[in-house]
Write a protein that binds this DNA or RNA. Sequence first.
RNA 1: GACCCUAUCGUCUAACGGUUAGGACAUCGCCCUCUCAAGGCGGUAACACGGGUUCAAAUCCCGUUAGGGUCGCCA
Length: 448
Amino acid sequence: MIVVRFAPSPTGYMHIGNLRTALLNYMFAQKKKNEGEDVSFVLRIDDTDRERSKPEYEAAVYDCLKWMGMKWDRLEHQSARLARYDEIVERLKAEGRLYACYETAEELEYKRRRRLARKLPPVYDREGLRLTAEDRAKLEAEGRRPHYRFKLDYEEMAWDDMVRGHCSYHGEYLSDPIVVREDGTLPYLLPSVIDDIDFGITHVIRGEDHVTNTAVQIQMFKALGGKIPVFGHPPLLTGKEGKLSKRTGSVNFMELRDEGIEPMTVACLLSSIGTSDATPVEKTLEALADHFDLSKFGRAQPRFDTQDLFKLNPRIVRDLSLETVNDRLAQKGMPAVDARLWEAVAPNLTKLDDLTGWIDRCSAGKVFSVPDEDRAFARTAAALLPDGAFDENTFALWTAALKEKTGRKGRDLFHPLRMALTGLEQGPELKALLPVLGREETVSRLQG
RNA sequence: GACCCUAUCGUCUAACGGUUAGGACAUCGCCCUCUCAAGGCGGUAACACGGGUUCAAAUCCCGUUAGGGUCGCCA
């Protein structure tokens, strides 16, 4: 059984970095599923921060995953598991793994700065560990409330990362992390480990910004007797101007969706950026997952450029199946199109929305003005339409006859036809458009 | 400052001691063609720098430079 998780904090809208993490986890699981394994994708909402968590952000997470076609097998909220976390905290306190500290945030900040000034690593000095019961009583008498730190063993923490290979850190260089705040709430680190154990997470795929956390969390897994998952830390994406954080990453999926970017465009690009694979063009996440392999990812940070989505989108759009296209039209309350229209127009689209313009342009009863000098030619053309089937061969037969009759050729021959039939200088091949219009409509447009 | 990670065409990257340094996207040219696309064919284009090691280095080692991550009572 393979169990992965995506654990967003609903304190802001999903951005491209979040989305990529979600997708990478999903792709990893889907690949295993394609290979016949049992898999589960857990969506865990890290909503312990009551102040900053907002329902609309959480809703956006669901919308985003659904938009891209990612389905989760299990949904959990950290806010519903507080009692469980307390239980573990009490256990660790009893085991002496957690120790009370009384510095204020300001005092800690001062200590950090002082160590930095002395060119020392700004790690916590473990003052709390040296406090006697009397010291603590005295501090509490002063009105101080304790926060608790997790005591790190000074040993090597190593793991084989699915992306980075062998990784190793030493406890000595790391600060004992605070796991219980002064107000009794818990920061990210410990609850995440508790959840990973309780939900049976087997593989944790998250950004490179978590590698040091992984070292610390490995000690927590050990302290809790849980099975340590396999980790994979792909490098963070960078933006054109450097970092791609919350701000540059303001590229959220809603904007992309509204600009006509297909979900599969985003999926194809995000699942392959950072690998040497040619960007795959696939219709479904299932098919896309076949290309996926975390070991294909490099360790350097790739540059993500939104423009690449716009370059890829036309390739994704014209590859869309007729069924998908009609589903999407139906969602907008529009009637279905037939295969001939779709195939004629698809190579000319940059986004699916452009299709509606061509549907309208091909609909019955349209007349486009023909310049006076071409009016007679258009009439002649109408009269020369070949009898019999009106199909993809019709155009060649028709224009050959027209060429012979009028002596026109090249642009003089074709341009007036295009203008009369579509009203535009450019567009899909007339050969393909003719059967879409049909004989009757073709004639009426030519006769103006 | 400490601990980690990274450095190859414009971009994403392959190469795991010996290659004409490969591919994809972009770009340019040609073909197709009524147009714009699409499609087909082809071209331009890269080993950050300096030292070693070696018969041989993009590849291994050291240094320099340049990026990045972490060092939060954020997640």
